[in-house]
Design a protein around this nucleic acid. Structure first.
Length: 312
DNA sequence: AGCCAGGCAGAGA
DNA sequence: TCTCTGCATGGC
């Protein structure tokens, strides 16, 4: 449920798109709620999700199959969506607001690097994303800059995803394609989205989901190592991408994806600047950062990318 | 122009 | 177990 008074305002008619519209009575609805310990900017700009774009005064994009606009003033978040927004629990889930961030901070080891990152990024939360969208997006992420991942994902949605309802006067917006839709468009279309050698990986993952050879929903209820093993059976999924999926969409808070930035940060701050092999970095992280290691990882990642620490 | 980007997989030491 | 390399593509 949403804290604070739910206020449905700014209603207006909505234009419908898609194959099976719900009906012409749907309206733009907004809600304001108090969100303690949330920095929306840090959360949405920290490279977890690639479909919410920063606009003047907020962010706009698609969550699940809903168009949404988000903004924040002080401790108050305003969310707008189209149609049956329900009790807005879905946006609270997406923003990970059920996690007690202060408790997470208290669980962290007391070391200078992490404390500096927390000071700089306080309020950064881990999103709870759709597992398929998360897996597909991070399959496309390898050796690409975040800006470029956003472009490829946008192309993919445009060419393979269905339409979602948008406010009147708004340009068309596409949902992230389902696994079945990815299979249906075929690999040539994927290559046209500039994903290069990742195209067959995405196609194979989509086929595995469609054929029921991988159960993404089940990954939340399985030990971390088991989840890794299952995901890494997919071509193009190694330890890093597996941990991204487990952390960003399966609630596995111990998952600790080590990319080039996190590796850089760990080497600089915990190994005196020497270059340490990836498996050793992962082993160190698993032992050092505790039950919320994945959050620590995201703080180090974002802080390092902002130029903080001794590694940027 | 050249190096790098939220990596992975295969080969070889 | 570690290191090296190719893989597409574009940003800086």
């Amino acid at each position: 449920m949403v804290a604070g008074g739910s206020r449905f305002s700014r209603s207006s008619a909505v234009r419908l798109y898609g194959m099976d519209p719900v009906g012409p009575g749907e309206q733009l609805a907004s809600v304001q709620f108090v969100a303690a310990e949330l920095d929306l900017a840090a959360t949405l700009d920290s490279g977890q999700a690639f479909r919410l774009e920063r606009l003047s005064g907020g962010w706009e994009g698609v969550v699940g199959r809903r168009w949404v606009r988000l903004s924040q003033r002080g401790g108050v978040v305003e969310a707008s969506a189209v149609g049956a927004a329900g009790d807005w629990g879905w946006i609270r889930d997406y923003l990970g607001l059920d996690v007690d961030l202060s408790g997470v901070y208290r669980s962290f080891p007391r070391d200078a690097a992490l404390e500096a990152a927390v000071r700089a990024c306080r309020g950064l939360r881990l999103l709870r994303q759709d597992p398929w969208e998360c897996l597909a997006s991070f399959l496309l992420s390898s050796t690409k800059q975040i800006r470029q991942i956003r472009q490829v994902v946008a192309l993919l949605c445009e060419r393979a995803g269905g339409l979602v309802e948008v406010p009147v006067g708004h340009g068309t917006v596409h949902a992230f394609p389902t696994a079945a839709e990815v299979v249906q468009v075929g690999e040539e279309v994927l290559r046209g989205c500039r994903m290069g050698f990742r195209a067959p990986h995405l196609m194979a993952a989509a086929e595995a989901v469609v054929e029921g050879r991988v159960d993404l929903a089940g990954l939340s209820a399985v030990p971390l190592e088991e989840g890794r093993e299952r995901l890494m059976r997919l071509p193009g999924v190694g330890p890093k991408i597996a941990d991204c999926v487990l952390l960003f969409s399966c609630g596995q808070a111990r998952a600790f994806p080590v990319d080039v930035w996190v590796a850089r940060s760990l080497c600089a701050n915990y190994f005196g600047g020497e270059t340490v092999p990836l498996p050793q970095l992962r082993a160190f992280a698993a032992a050092h950062f505790g039950p919320w290691a994945g959050y620590a990882q995201q703080y180090l990642f974002h802080y390092t990318r902002l130029g903080g620490g001794d590694s940027g």
